[in-house]
């Protein structure tokens, strides 16, 4: 689980992009694209390089009808997976 005070940040060269042809949000990286589902997009929408993981989870818990622990676990797994693909930095 990501610590609450860790700050996720999308690195230089990677950006969230609206694919108007397919009508979906994607994470665009050099020579790769990661299509985002609604919750993935909601998580990355809150990744601004200044908000901590704890703040992001709090925002998601206010917007979604789900237990905070479940949101934190799912968001942590999602962001860790993006970090492993080198399309997200986790600053501690």
């Amino acid at each position: 689980m990501i610590d609450a005070d860790v700050i996720p940040e999308i690195p230089r060269g990677v950006r969230v992009h609206r694919d108007t042809v397919r009508n979906l949000w994607v994470l665009l990286a050099p020579e790769r694209v990661l299509p985002l589902d609604d919750t993935g997009q909601a998580i990355l929408d809150r990744v601004d390089g200044t908000s901590s993981f704890g703040q992001i989870v709090t925002g998601l818990a206010e917007a979604y009808a789900a237990p905070r622990d479940q949101i934190a676990a799912d968001a942590s797994e999602f962001l860790t997976s993006l970090q492993a693909r080198r399309v997200l930095d986790l600053k501690s």
Partner: peptide, 12 residues
């Protein structure tokens, strides 16, 4: 809104 576990797939 309903929460669902986010999925990741990666895409020449």
């Amino acid at each position: 809104m309903a929460w669902s576990k986010p999925t990741i797939r990666e895409i020449g």
